[in-house]
Computed example of a mutant assay.
Amino acid sequence: MEYVTLGKTGLKVSKIGLGGIPIQKIDAEGTRILVHKLSDRGVNYIDTARGYTVSEEYLGYALEGIRDKFVIATKSMARTREAMAADIEKSLCNLKTDYIDIYQVHNPSMEQLDQVLAKDGALEALQEAKKAGKIGHLGLTAHSVEVFERALDLDWVETIMFPYNIVEGQGEELIAECKKRNIGFIDMKPLAGGAIENGTLALRYICSNPNVTIVIPGMAEEHEMEENIKACLDSSPLSQTELDEIRKVREQLGTNFCRRCNYCAPCSAGISIPNVFLFAGYLNRYDLGEWARSRYSTLQAKASDCIECGVCETRCPYHLPIRKMMKECAEQFGE
């Protein structure tokens, strides 16, 4: 296994880690088996979240007796001090540990980030927990380039997680800036939510970028683990055949694929357009229908609320047929 230093955290982590979303598809015992196999193969980084239903709980069971072999990262969508403090305690309980290596602010909007940073905001609880030894390091995850760029200037941010893959390169310059500032960059959505079928190609592409610190594909089965590890440890240059396939993937997905840049906002009907497409991706590609529907149900405005004004389409840099895509999402979710 290849190990790298995760930016200013100083933590030594494997080049590949476990993304904890698919844990929801297996049971606690299956998670234990997978985690032990990861340990045997030298993988020492696990990412999960309060929002991933049973993921923290299953991982807590799986880590009993081998907690010290892993760097554990989790995250919360809490924005206030009180809510974040409660989530930190819940994470500690679920993960059956007295400390969490990295705790992340989970996907805030610019407005929500203001709340996190304000008096009685979530950051106060995170810093208090860090001072108490319950948290080792602080990070932030984002889907918005705007939030990513802002996070670079926050002195408490030691790691940033953002989507980067064959068809999502909107954060590439900011990823390079992470390297310059010694901020650990954690790559999520390496297979674009499952849209990219060739996982080996996807991971080879990501690992060819020296600015990516660690990549965390979701894994639920041993064969996925073996394929992913092999791809990440293959340091040979991308072949012409691979470059040609990368070009084809971009041609296939690039014209009809939401990169969650959020340039389409604000929606006239109050719809969070990128989140609708994000949850639709989970519904259609991750085999996580129930979870995707539960997340979708939290949206104040649904796809069916689209008034077809078309303003969003004039802002989309990728010229997506958003109105048509919204109709499809409304049909898939039934609202």
Rank of each mutant, 00 (worst) to 15 (best):
V71G: 05
S76N: 06
I100H: 12
I21M: 15
Y99C: 14
V71M: 08
Y58C: 09
R67K: 10
V35A: 02
D47R: 12
S76R: 11
E57T: 14
R67L: 00
I102P: 09
K37R: 12
T74A: 06
D114P: 13
D114W: 10
S39N: 13
Y103C: 14
I21H: 13
K37S: 07
G51F: 12
D27P: 05
I66Y: 03
K90Q: 15
I102K: 04
M84D: 04
D40V: 09
E89S: 11
A49I: 08
V71T: 14
I33H: 09
D101I: 12
R67Y: 04
C93K: 15
R50M: 15
G20N: 01
E56C: 05
D27S: 05
E29C: 09
I66F: 02
M84V: 04
I72C: 05
N44K: 02
L113C: 15
K69P: 01
Q104N: 12
R32E: 06
L34V: 03
K25N: 14
R41C: 09
D98A: 08
T31A: 08
K37H: 07
A86I: 10
I102C: 07
T48L: 04
A83V: 00
E82L: 05
L113T: 15
D101A: 10
T97M: 01
L113A: 15
L38G: 06
R41I: 11
N94W: 07
L95S: 02
R79L: 10
V43F: 06
I23N: 04
